[in-house]
Structures are given as structure tokens and as C-alpha cells.
Computed example of a mutant assay.
Amino acid sequence: MSESYLQDKNAKVYIAGHRGMVGSAILRKLQNEGFTNLVFRTSSEVDLRDQAAVREFFESEKPEYVFLAAAKVGGIVANNTYRADFIYENLMIQSNVIESSRKVNVKKLMFLGSSCIYPKMASQPLKETYLLTGDLEPTNEPYAVAKIAGIKMCDAYRDQYGCNYISVMPTNLYGLNDNYHPENSHVLPALIRRFHEAKEQNLGSVKIWGSGSPKREFLFADDLAEACVFLMQNYNEAGLVNVGCGEDLSIKELAYKIREIVGFHGGIEFDLSKPDGTPRKLMDVSKLSGFGWVFSTSLESGLRIAYEDFKRKKN
């Protein structure tokens, strides 16, 4: 496809999920780049699980580009507890947005997934070709299945209708507008909250789920947004693209980094009765780097920004 994409700053761009961490980062990036015709709705204005509401919205607005960053997301507890909600809501959201995009001839759509689509015991680092080569991590299988369906849906629409729909799989993300819920958040924001509250309450130690040995990769959400805009402009292929930094660390190492940044001086206890989840999730980002994109925010810099954001929101 030789056509250029997302070059006109007046193009109408719809960001689904604009209040979430990823969607808000994409919104900031586009605004900083000078895009002026950005469309978004809150979930109370348009329920993306409602087929009729989504169809009416698309017919009314007729966006040219769509960033599909809306999803029901959460950490290991939420994924394992609300299994039906995670598969149902995500399937409905992505199906409604993708089909409505086709009906109004959206020029290009980006579907955002997650690194949890890969098999639990896949070789590291995770290559795009490892998709559907093994069993998924049981605790988040419903969410992963929904995201895999989204990738296959984009490819099917490309095959049958010629739609330029692309799929992007970010690694673990953190940053501004993260979810710090005490039970339903991901590991990094959960640790920020836990250490901050321990510091405030002068606790002697903080307890962390699992052994601390699993390794995870973390990308600052604004770096992802930069990659998303880059790919919307430059990538037009079927399949999927990993987005990450290509570096990881153990949960234990992460915990000590966050403890230092928060300024908590107590101990750290690991609850071995709790599950660890996938042993390692490191993305192979050679496909993306081959296009000339690399991340720019170090973990330490990003953690400091995230912690300041958490304190602002808490106050």
C-alpha cells in the first residue's frame, strides 16, 4: 500500500478509550503533533459494548482513522476473578468498533492488544510468530483469547474487505493515568500504591504476591503512543507488531526500585502462597526496530513521572 496515512493534521481521528492510560497518551501525542480534528466519547456517552450505539456514533462522526485502545483491563486478580466479563466485554468492544469502521470506510484502524496473547511457556524473547503455538497463561486466558480474536478479526477484514487494519501488541505499560486500584491494577502501579501507603502508615514491611522471580518488561505509555502514531503512518501489514523496550527485570528488582523512588525504608516480604503467573514476558522488538523506532524513556525516569502522577491523583 503506497498511500500515505495520518499525514493531514485535519484528518478526523477517533481514539476509543481516550481516558485510559494508552488512549490518553495517544491523545496527548496527536495534540502535540498538531492534529486538530480528534474525536472521542466517554463510556457513558457511547457504550462500546452496545452495537447499535457504536453504529450510530460511527455513522454520525465518520472518522478517517481509529485507534482502538478501549478495553476492559486489569491485573492477575481481576483477570482471574472476572473471567466472563473480560472475554465478553472485550469481544463486544472490538467487534463493534471494527465492524462499524468497515461500514463507514475508515481509512485505517489500529487494534491494540497485549503481550499476554503469547503462550505461557513460549521461548524468550517473544516473537510475533509465536502466536497460537502453545497454551495460554490460565489466569488471563479469557482476556488473551479476546485479544487474539481481535488480531484475527483485523486480518480477516483485510483479507475479505481490503481494510487496512493493523494490530499492535504492547508489552507491560505504565505511566500517566494508570489504574492504581488496590485489587484490580497491574503489578507496577499496585507496587507504587502499596509502598506509598506503607510509607504513610509507617509500616515495617510490604507484602508482595509470589516469589518475585518472574521477569517483566515495562514500557512508558507515552513511548507506546509515539510508536502507535509512527506505525499508523508507516506500517500497513497483516499480523501483528510487538511494541516494547526489549529489556526486562524481575518483580523483586522492580519492587526495590519502586521502594527507593517512593522513599519507603521498610522491608519486603514475598508471599509464596500466591501465584507468580507467567515466568517471563520479554518482547522481541526487532520487527519494530527494523522500521527505525526505539523507546526513549528509561524505567527510572518513567517511574518517577508515574509516582508524581499517582500522588497528584491521590491528593
Rank of each mutant, 00 (worst) to 15 (best):
Y88D: 15
A198G: 00
A84N: 15
F57S: 12
E33K: 15
D8T: 03
R49M: 14
Y307D: 00
G277E: 01
G175M: 01
Q160C: 09
E45W: 07
C245P: 00
Y174C: 00
N37M: 02
V145F: 05
L173P: 01
L109F: 08
N37G: 10
V46L: 05
I251F: 13
N140T: 06
G302N: 06
V168L: 04
A306N: 04
Y143I: 01
M1E: 14
N105K: 14
V73M: 10
D271H: 03
S250L: 07
K103P: 08
G239C: 00
I166H: 00
K215F: 06
P119A: 09
R83G: 09
P214G: 08
Y307F: 03
L219G: 01
E128Y: 08
E64D: 14
V145I: 14
L191V: 04
S298K: 13
A198K: 00
K274T: 01
H265N: 14
K252H: 08
F270S: 02
Y161D: 13
N90E: 13
L48W: 13
L240C: 11
A16N: 08
A144W: 01
M121V: 07
K107M: 11
M153P: 06
N32L: 15
S185A: 13
I268R: 02
G74R: 03
S298N: 12
F58C: 10
E3R: 12
A78W: 03
I258G: 04
N177Q: 12
Q94P: 08
R83S: 12
E247H: 10
K107S: 14
H181M: 00
D222V: 06
K103T: 15
K9C: 03
F295N: 08
A16P: 04
Q7S: 08
S286H: 14
E237M: 07
H196D: 07
D47P: 08
G20R: 04
F67K: 07
F57I: 05
V13F: 05
S114C: 10
E183L: 12
E3M: 12
R83P: 12
L303Q: 05
S296I: 01
K120P: 10
S185K: 02
D159S: 12
E128M: 10
N179K: 11
S298P: 06
E99R: 13
L6M: 11
R28T: 10
R259H: 02
E217Q: 06
S2W: 02
L299K: 04
I87S: 12
K108D: 09
M169R: 06
S100G: 13
Q94A: 12
L112Y: 10
G212C: 10
E61D: 15
K274M: 11
L6C: 09
A71E: 14
T42N: 15
F86L: 13
V46R: 03
K287N: 14
F40M: 15
N105A: 15
P125N: 04
M92I: 02
L219C: 04
